[in-house]
């Protein structure tokens, strides 16, 4: 059922790559001059979905699942092997200016700020490149600066800023043109806990303020849980789940991960009383415990076992994906 309101529409997207294989060593290099064997990698293998305006959707999957490839295709950087895509009514591959002025792709911490000049200069440059009208620029600029609380560092050279301040300015630079669609690829990777929170809060605020459509990829459940109502799980280029996040958590993330640091050795049998022992190499222990009992279990462990530290985390993506497969297989 196709929805003509959909901002992003992907139908049977396929993206295959030819990867040339080369044997290691000198002889391998020489041989590769005439003997080119290649392998076809199916990075994206028949994915379809539709996203409406204002949604924040999380793409979850392990490394190499096809998340980044999908985003790059939606940005017009990669040409699809097959399938139809449409973003804001445009065919991304045409890379029309009108299209490029309405979306933003933010990948990791890549810099676009000029190192030796104040961030303001990069902002003004982007204003010129994106042809942002003065009034609109002022409004967006003021909003972003206020949301990120950076008004006092705009005239300072970027190289003199702290990592966190730089990250905020990079965000502003990326969003000055007020994109309606935002593609965020592993946005919190490499950030500390404080910066992760700042980033997540900002994304939420941007979505609320501008009703922007956002796709966020991550292999941390934590990111997705904070921000997305809807999640799409991608595994080996296939979509294996598309629905409400709460659903996933209820049905497939039934366990939580408890990371313990023991101060004294404990037997495997003892540990198994509290949950499924996933990993045990003294002093580190990883337990999987049913979601609803996680906090209680943590309390019990703290009381009854010689632990130095306990951490409660979302289960790793692999565990969730495994659950999805096992459930589907059971059906």
């Amino acid at each position: 059922m196709s929805n003509s309101q959909a901002v992003i529409s992907v139908k049977n997207l396929k993206k295959y790559f030819k990867v040339y294989k080369k044997e290691p060593g000198l002889w391998g290099s020489v041989k590769s001059l005439w003997d080119r064997t290649y392998e076809e990698v199916k990075a994206v293998d028949d994915i379809s979905f539709e996203i409406e305006q204002g949604e924040i959707v999380g793409f979850i999957g392990q490394n190499g699942a096809g998340k980044t490839t999908t985003l790059k295709t939606l940005s017009g950087l990669l040409y699809p092997t097959a399938g139809e895509i449409s973003v804001l009514g445009f065919n991304p591959w045409d890379r029309k200016s009108k299209f490029q002025k309405q979306f933003a792709l933010v990948m990791g911490q890549k810099n676009q700020l000029w190192w030796d000049l104040p961030a303001m200069e990069t902002f003004l440059l982007n204003k010129a490149i994106y042809e942002i009208p003065d009034a609109q620029f002022k409004k967006t600029f003021d909003t972003l600066v206020q949301l990120l609380a950076v008004s006092d560092i705009l005239k300072v050279q970027v190289r003199k800023l702290s990592l966190g301040q730089r990250m905020k300015c990079e965000l502003i630079a990326a969003l000055l043109h007020n994109p309606k669609v935002l593609f965020l690829d592993e946005p919190t990777i490499g950030l500390d806990v404080v910066m992760q929170k700042i980033l997540r809060d900002f994304i939420k605020a941007y979505n609320q303020e501008f009703n922007a459509t956002i796709i966020l990829t991550s292999h941390y459940m934590g990111d997705v849980k904070e921000l997305c109502q809807r999640a799409i799980i991608i595994d080996h280029g296939h979509k294996i789940f598309d629905g409400q996040l709460d659903d996933i958590i209820e049905r497939y993330a039934r366990t939580k991960k408890l990371s313990l640091v023991l101060s004294k050795k404990v037997t495997l049998k003892e540990l198994s009383k509290y949950g499924e022992v996933k990993d045990y190499s003294f002093p580190a222990v990883t337990l999987l415990v049913p979601r609803h009992q996680a906090t209680k279990a943590a309390g019990k462990i703290l009381n009854e076992l010689p632990v130095q530290d306990v951490n409660i985390e979302e289960p790793p993506i692999e565990a969730i994906i495994r659950e999805v497969f096992e459930t589907k297989a059971a059906k």
């Binding site: 940005s75 017009g76 200016s97 009108k98 994106y130 042809e131």
Partner: peptide, 11 residues
């Protein structure tokens, strides 16, 4: 591998 940023600009 940084060429993408060139392709993304509306110029």
């Amino acid at each position: 591998g940084e060429f993408n940023k060139v392709l993304l600009k509306p110029i």
